[in-house]
């Protein structure tokens, strides 16, 4: 595997007047070609700053960033623009049309007056085709939906033809299908086109599902990276995100609101119905336990036929809703 991006003792932050605000110190990381890396962390941890520093649009405080084993500072701005593509949260469409904005992706390759060659046009049209935007090519971007706008921004960065693509919160403001679509698109780019994708997101479940590697960045916590499953099992997610209101559930791989008094329930039966009953009970402040001798016991006879034994009184229920009503 080829390492495409590597840092050595990187410190990131910003200089404000005379004070230097260090957001993070001594970050050493590496990204391999063809990987999808998701950067997770709470707001204010410095995710955007890290991505901007890695992409070269913001100067790092100290340390080195290596792109293809060469220090980024040795690249010219133009050279760098052919290596790293960037999608940010800021969106300035200025009354542009789809094709105009995607064409801007070819600018690192154009000359002084930014004349696009036939090859440039071909690449732009190909990208529009691939991203399913060809039917919108002459539309004003402002008139598109949020998801389509994000696709336009990704199309632009694809036209830039860089091996590394860095995206800052590409799924923010999108609806659920939109988020899946963006993630699916990025996974395809990484796995089928061997692009290296680095993105920050707040969509934990999507990141766990799709990412090859996950980076965790938190305030006053050391930088952590690894594959999602390892990080879950090592309790890293819990360490980075847990607080007194939120608990990471190892079983489901998602966060749950904590703080309610939890009562144990034994569920007698397994399969899909047991799983969904367990979820419904979770919401009401119960958790599933393996101990068969508990005061509350639920038996699944067959579909839609449940028996609840609550402190030695037996009730029958034909739906989970009645089951929950009976419990209360």
């Amino acid at each position: 595997m080829t390492t495409i991006l590597k840092t050595h003792n990187l410190s990131i932050g910003y200089v404000d007047k005379k004070t230097t605000n260090i957001l993070h110190k001594n970050i050493s990381l590496s990204v391999n070609q063809g990987e999808l890396v998701c950067l997770l962390g709470p707001n204010g941890a410095g995710k955007s700053t890290l991505l901007r520093s890695l992409s070269g649009v913001q100067k790092q405080l100290s340390g080195n960033i290596f792109l293809h084993n060469k220090s980024v500072s040795e690249y010219s701005i133009k050279n760098l623009s052919q290596q790293i593509g960037l999608v940010l949260t800021e969106r300035n469409f200025s009354g542009m049309r789809v094709i105009d904005l995607v064409s801007l992706g070819r600018y690192p390759y154009t000359g002084f007056f930014a004349r696009l060659t036939k090859t440039d046009y071909k690449i732009v049209l190909k990208v529009l085709q691939d991203t399913g935007l060809i039917k919108f090519k002459h539309k004003l971007i402002n008139e598109l939906s949020d998801g389509e706008q994000q696709r336009v921004m990704i199309a632009r960065v694809l036209a830039q033809q860089t091996s590394l693509i860095i995206l800052d919160e590409p799924t923010a403001f999108l609806d659920l299908p939109g988020r899946y679509e963006v993630f699916q698109m990025l996974v395809n780019l990484a796995h089928d086109y061997n692009k290296t994708i680095l993105l920050s997101t707040h969509d934990l479940d999507l990141a766990i599902k799709f990412a090859d590697k996950i980076w965790l960045l938190g305030k006053d916590k050391p930088f952590v990276c690894g594959i999602p499953e390892d990080l879950i099992l090592k309790g890293q997610f819990a360490y980075f995100f847990d607080n007194n209101k939120l608990k990471f559930n190892l079983q489901s791989g998602s966060f749950e609101v904590s703080g309610k008094i939890q009562k144990p329930v034994h569920i007698n039966g397994n399969g899909i119905e047991a799983q969904w009953i367990s979820k419904a009970l979770n919401r009401k402040g119960y958790y599933e336990s393996n101990d068969p001798n508990l005061p509350i016991n639920i038996e699944i006879k067959n579909s839609g036929n449940y028996t609840l034994n609550n402190h030695n009184t037996e009730h029958k229920a034909d739906s989970i809703e009645t089951l929950l009503d009976l419990l209360e």
């Binding site: 649009v57 701005i77 940010l88 801007l104 600018y107 930014a114």
Partner: peptide, 23 residues
């Protein structure tokens, strides 16, 4: 007229312009 390319890139904002190779 020599500013055409820079201005087109600045349409997207300074950070994008820099990522597109603008000093």
């Amino acid at each position: 007229l020599f500013a055409v390319k820079s201005l087109n890139m600045l349409n997207l904002g300074e950070r994008y312009a820099q990522n597109l190779g603008l000093n």
